[in-house]
Design a protein around this nucleic acid. Structure first.
Length: 505
RNA sequence: GCGGCCGUGGUCCAGCCUGGUAAGACCCGAGCUUCCCAAGCUCGUGACGCGGGUCCGAAUCCCGCCGGCCGCACCA
């Protein structure tokens, strides 16, 4: 994809209603995007695909909990204290620094977790000044990336917009475990909005202040980190970017099969490896090419406060380089222990076979939806010659079939509208278009990735047949109208090859 | 937050320096034409980010704000 194509793609995305800048008529706001009608449909299709894997395929339980969360919850989870950076600002030039990094650079001292007062003291004692302009620093302050609000009118009860959906799942652990009738491993998912008050959002859809996440929490017995279906993925190839290679400044990827990665302890256990493989399958499923997928091992300094091993799935993009789209974190028993302690509830699980209680460990595959959405657009957009085609996977396409009258006369439009109605009645996302010429309509359909177009012509009036045109090849077949919904559905599910769908033209 | 650049119909932009109410391309809509891949013709809708200032008069000059892009920093 060239620079021109990138620009064209973003133009198209705006023009055709995939994404729009939010709050536009009031001047806009950084870090927020609206999904237009097509974007909304495509986003739902991505979510559906994810749900098919996790809820349908893996049998995970889905819940939906509030985005607004009381202080105690996020205090217990560590977010109030750790979802934050101690920052200092230069009083002269305004440059902002993370206090811990600044002190480490200047003095070698590790003041991580020592509190603002201590950091303030070190900065003062050692006379640390602004590396940019040698100016004096102001007070050390915490910048917490959570949006804070008050629950109830005039209330002193503090709440936050959740920074992740995961906490809602941990909170419900007792009920969920009972619902699952005490079976481990137990998987739970939640899809919804999360919020992070980024200091300076950039890069379009890549850094948002409000975004949709799809998170899964896998609860398991730490003494038994086996996955019952591991053999299904044992031979999946994974491209790993190991922490040691990153530190050495080496871009090299290590290709392994899931099984070997576990045997060699490159990946901590079967469960983690299983979900890396599943993540890769999901990304391939939405149309990301294998060579554009890698798994980056986070080094200890990068990991979140709750994690002991984390793998990020990354997608290579032309515009932003490698983009993190999924984080797979080993959260151990951190959350359950924290919430048990803070709430006074027993959040352990009784394991029948062992006749004892254990606190489950958790592996969390956490997916962003907006970032893959962008990546899908970028990887799908092609221009060959004069044609511009969004080569979306059929199940992601916001419109499945365009319905056109070949000409706007002789009763063809009326007949085409009938066809469109019939398809819609069959729950196919069909769209009637009669403007301009048929060529223009094909072109418009290609631009938004509509896989098939049906055209009603004069022959239709005689023998009740229509043509179906394939997006990628522009080839056509002729089929009987009454078979149309059925044939289109088969085509959309890739059950029959296009040439076999009807009489080739 | 800082520095540089920028903000004009749906989209991309010209005009700004040298103030005198805005042009083009594409798109979109109506019609003509048209028996299958953005043809052509006619007509049409539609814009100066917000606020203030200077001026007889501001898209244009000045100030403030908001937004965007790039770089720095940040990204648990």
């Amino acid at each position: 994809m060239t620079k021109t194509q990138e620009t064209e793609l973003m133009e198209m995305a705006k023009r055709r209603g995939f994404i729009w800048p939010s709050f536009e008529i009031y001047g806009g706001a950084a870090g927020f995007y609206d999904f237009g009608p097509l974007g909304s449909a495509m986003k739902n299709n991505i979510i559906k695909k994810w749900r098919d894997i996790y809820v349908c395929g893996e049998g995970f339980l889905e819940i939906d909990s509030p985005t607004l969360t009381p202080h105690e919850v996020l205090k217990a989870s560590g977010h109030v204290d750790h979802f934050t950076d101690a920052m200092v600002e230069c009083k002269k030039c305004g440059s902002a620094f993370k206090a811990t990094d600044l002190i480490k650079d200047k003095t070698g001292q590790d003041v991580e977790g020592l509190g603002k007062e201590k950091m303030q003291e070190v900065i003062k004692q050692d006379g640390i000044r602004c590396p940019d302009c040698a100016g004096e620093f102001g007070e050390v302050f915490d910048f917490n990336a959570m949006f804070k609000t008050a629950i109830g009118p005039g209330s002193k009860r503090v709440g936050y917009l959740r920074p992740e959906t995961a906490q809602g799942i941990f909170i419900d652990f007792k009920r969920l475990f009972r619902h699952a009738r005490g079976k481990l491993p137990m998987g739970v998912v939640q899809i919804g909005k999360g919020y992070r008050n980024e200091i300076s959002p950039r890069q379009g859809m890549i850094r948002l202040r409000e975004f949709t996440m799809a998170e899964a929490e896998v609860f398991f017995d730490p003494e038994d980190p086996k996955h019952p279906k591991f053999s299904d993925v044992a031979h999946d190839h994974l491209n790993l970017w190991l922490s040691k290679d990153q530190i050495a400044g080496n871009e090299k990827l290590t290709e392994v099969v899931a099984e070997t990665a576990v045997d060699k302890k490159t990946i901590c256990n079967e469960i983690m490896a299983y979900y890396l493989a599943l993540t890769q399958r999901f990304l391939l499923g939405i149309g990301i090419p294998p060579a554009a997928i890698r798994f980056r091992e986070q080094n200890p300094r990068q990991r979140a406060h709750y994690s002991s091993e984390t793998w990020d799935a990354e997608i290579l993009t032309e515009r932003f380089g490698w983009v993190e789209v999924t984080g797979l974190a080993y959260r151990s028993d951190y959350d359950l222990v924290s919430h048990a302690k803070a709430s006074g509830e027993d959040l352990s699980a009784f394991i029948e076979e062992k006749k004892k209680k254990v606190v489950c460990h958790v592996i969390e595959p956490s997916y962003g939806i907006d970032r893959p959405f962008y990546c899908v657009l970028e990887h799908s957009y092609t221009t060959d010659g004069k044609r511009k085609i969004l080569k979306l996977k059929k199940d992601l396409a916001p419109v499945k079939v365009g319905v056109f009258p070949l000409l706007n006369k002789d009763g063809l439009p009326e007949k085409a509208i009938e066809v469109e109605k019939a398809l819609k009645a069959d729950c196919l996302a069909a769209e009637y278009d009669a403007s301009g010429t048929v060529g223009r309509r094909y072109s418009r359909a290609d631009e938004i990735g509509t896989p098939y177009c049906v055209t009603v012509d004069h022959q239709t009036l005689q023998d009740l047949t229509v043509t179906i045109r394939d997006r990628d090849s522009t080839k056509q077949v002729r089929v009987e109208v009454h078979e149309l919904p059925c044939i289109l559905k088969s085509l959309l599910r890739d059950e029959i090859p296009f040439e076999k769908a009807g009489k080739p033209i």
